[in-house]
C-alpha cells in the first residue's frame, strides 16, 4: 500500500467560540471534530455529507486556509499546523483547492492569462518569458483554447470557468488537489465533463485528490474510498471495493435513500409496464 501523502489527526475547528478572554466561551458546536483521515499517494478520496456536516471546514483546514483549533495536518510527514506563516507559504502550492462556485472564485477584472501567471509568479515557478507558454499549456490541459488567456471571466460559461479554476490550481504544480463540490453548481451534462477532466488529470499528473460533494452516488463513482460526515464528524469510511449497499451507518443509508435516482424509478416503471400488459 502506498504511503499516505497527507494525513490529518484529530482535526477540530469551532467557529465563533473564541470571544473576549474574560468571557465564558459560547456554547457553539464544533464545525469539525476529531477528523482523522489519510490520503494515499495517487488516490482519490471522496468526502460526502449534507450542508453543515463540516466537509468544507475539513477542506479549508487541510489546505490551511483556516487554522484548525486542534489536531495536526501532516503533509509528507511534516506537520503544517506548526509551521510559521512564511514557511507555510512555501508549502502552500503543494495543496491546491478548487471551490464550488466558479463565478465568485475568479477575479472579474483580471484576464485569464494574468490569473494563471500570477500563481506562477507568487510561487516562483516560471520566469516572465516562460509564462506565456506555460499558460497556454495549462489551458490546453483543461480543454480550453490558448486564446482564452486574453479574455475576462465573463466570456465563459460555468463549466468553462470551472476549467479555468482547475487550471489555476494546476498552475501551482500541486501534489494534492482538494475539489470542494466542484460540480454542484453546474448543469448535469457539464458536471460529467468536469468530473471526467478531473479523473483524467489525476491519472496524467499523478495527483492525489480529495473530492468533496453531497451526491453519494457520484462520489462513489469517482472515489474508491469514501468518508461520510455528519455534524462535523466522520461517521463512516466506506473502504475500497465496498459497495454502497454495504454502508452500515444509518445516516449513510438515509443519504442513499433520499436521492431520487433513475435506477429506482426505472424499476417502478418496468413494474407498471408489466401490470399494464397483464
Amino acid at each position: 500500500m502506498p504511503d499516505p501523502i497527507l494525513q490529518t489527526v484529530d482535526l477540530g475547528k469551532t467557529y465563533g467560540a473564541r470571544r473576549r478572554f474574560w468571557q465564558k466561551p459560547a456554547n457553539v458546536p464544533p464545525a469539525l471534530a476529531d477528523a482523522t483521515l489519510e490520503l494515499r499517494q495517487g488516490e482519490i478520496l471522496g468526502v460526502v455529507g449534507e450542508s453543515g456536516s463540516g466537509k468544507t471546514t475539513l477542506a479549508r483546514c487541510i489546505a490551511l486556509l483556516e487554522r484548525p483549533d486542534t489536531g495536526r495536518v501532516l503533509f509528507e510527514g511534516e506537520d503544517l499546523t506548526k509551521l510559521p506563516e512564511a514557511a507555510l507559504r512555501r508549502r502552500r502550492r503543494y495543496i491546491q483547492t478548487v471551490f464550488q462556485d466558479p463565478y465568485s472564485s475568479l477575479n472579474p477584472r483580471q484576464r485569464i492569462g494574468d490569473t494563471l501567471a500570477e500563481v506562477m509568479l507568487v510561487h516562483g515557478l516560471a520566469s516572465r518569458g516562460e509564462q506565456r507558454d506555460r499558460v497556454a499549456a495549462l489551458l490546453e490541459q483543461v480543454g480550453l483554447p490558448a486564446t482564452a488567456a486574453a479574455n475576462f471571466p465573463s466570456a465563459f460559461s460555468g463549466g468553462q470557468r470551472q476549467r479555468i479554476c482547475i487550471a489555476r490550481a494546476l498552475a501551482a504544480e500541486p501534489k494534492v488537489l482538494i475539489a470542494d463540490e466542484p460540480v454542484s453548481s453546474l448543469d448535469v451534462s457539464v458536471q460529467a465533463q468536469i468530473v471526467n477532466l478531473l479523473l483524467d488529470l489525476k491519472e496524467r499528473l499523478g495527483l492525489s485528490v480529495i473530492f468533496i460533494g453531497h451526491d453519494l452516488q457520484l462520489i462513489n463513482f469517482i472515489a474508491p474510498r469514501v468518508i461520510v460526515m455528519l455534524g462535523g464528524r466522520i461517521v463512516e469510511t466506506l473502504p475500497e471495493g465496498s459497495s454502497l449497499a454495504d454502508a452500515k451507518h444509518d445516516y449513510t443509508r438515509a443519504l442513499l435513500q433520499a436521492v431520487p435516482t433513475l435506477e429506482k424509478l426505472d424499476a417502478a416503471y418496468r413494474l407498471s409496464q408489466q401490470q399494464n400488459m397483464a
Binding site: G143, R163, D200
Partner: peptide, 10 residues
C-alpha cells in the same frame, strides 16, 4: 456519449 474529456469544450 463517452468521449475523451479533453476533446470537448464545456
Amino acid at each position: 456519449f463517452v468521449r475523451d474529456p479533453l476533446a470537448v469544450d464545456a
